[in-house]
């Protein structure tokens, strides 16, 4: 995998999750949470812009072309980021898993041999620490809440659990960049991640899901049935009015 493809992959992860989170705008349980969700969405959209901006420097296209002019097959985000998670418990479960990953991954990426990636990671890592605090707090609140919220949180965690494996799956072509110290070794992050997630699940009185299934394919452009409809909504305006400006 070239550096360009790796940067676009990380950008796609951030953009797709940002878009999913922004769908909560106006639909959160209450006003304050609505703002918090939208703020988190903006953090991820901001991260996507930094990564796409760097991709453009590396010879890629511009950020709008990345976001609005590619079809699902060309997106290389991991599957966990594209899940709709339109149930609040699902959104919380997914967020905990990816935030716990982000904190570890970005911390390592801060030491990247690539100065641009290191700079982007340094900025994103601070946000990720806050995101993790937020998602862990929600998990505990709902897991250790009422019998109903406990049940729904447990089920949500089971439903998204199989998607976490892809976070740690070494893409064959990524190995060269790992060896050069440009990208962190994802697989090596898993033990620490599992310990952190287990501790939060424990505090939330939730069971660690039994992982008897897992899926992957995102980095190769093989997506769930959920991505294309999301892109259709996200890209509609740009594609209907090419070149339009505010």
């Amino acid at each position: 995998m070239s550096l360009l493809a790796a940067v676009v992959g990380l950008g796609d992860d951030a953009l797709v999750l940002g878009q999913r989170l922004s769908a909560w705008c106006g639909k959160s349980p209450w006003l304050e949470e609505d703002l918090a969700m939208a703020n988190t969405a903006l953090d991820f959209l901001g991260r996507a812009r930094l990564l796409y901006g760097y991709a453009e420097q590396l010879g890629g296209c511009d950020e709008d072309a990345y976001a609005f002019q590619r079809d699902a097959r060309a997106f290389t985000n991991l599957l966990i980021y594209e899940l709709p998670c339109a149930d609040f418990a699902l959104a919380c479960a997914r967020q905990l898993l990816v935030d716990a990953f982000d904190v570890l991954h970005l911390e390592k990426l801060c030491d990247s041999a690539d100065a641009n990636l290191a700079g982007i990671a340094a900025k994103a890592h601070k946000e990720a620490r806050y995101h993790r605090r937020r998602s862990a707090a929600w998990l505990v609140r709902l897991g250790d809440g009422t019998a109903e919220s406990h049940c729904r949180m447990q089920k949500a965690m089971e439903d998204v659990w199989g998607y976490h494996a892809e976070l740690f799956a070494p893409v064959e072509a990524e190995i060269g960049l790992v060896e050069k110290g440009v990208l962190p070794d994802r697989a090596a992050l898993r033990p620490q991640w599992l310990a952190a997630v287990s501790a939060t699940l424990d505090e939330a009185t939730l069971e660690l899901p039994s992982a008897d299934w897992q899926v992957d394919g995102g980095r190769r452009g093989l997506h769930t049935e959920h991505l294309a409809p999301m892109l259709a909504e996200m890209q509609h305006l740009h594609r209907s009015h090419p070149g339009a400006r505010w």
Partner: peptide, 20 residues
Amino acid sequence: SLRAEDAELALQYAREIYTR
């Protein structure tokens, strides 16, 4: 001012709403 279930959540929301 804002509404929240408890002080910890209120602190997080305060960060989101008043210091972004």
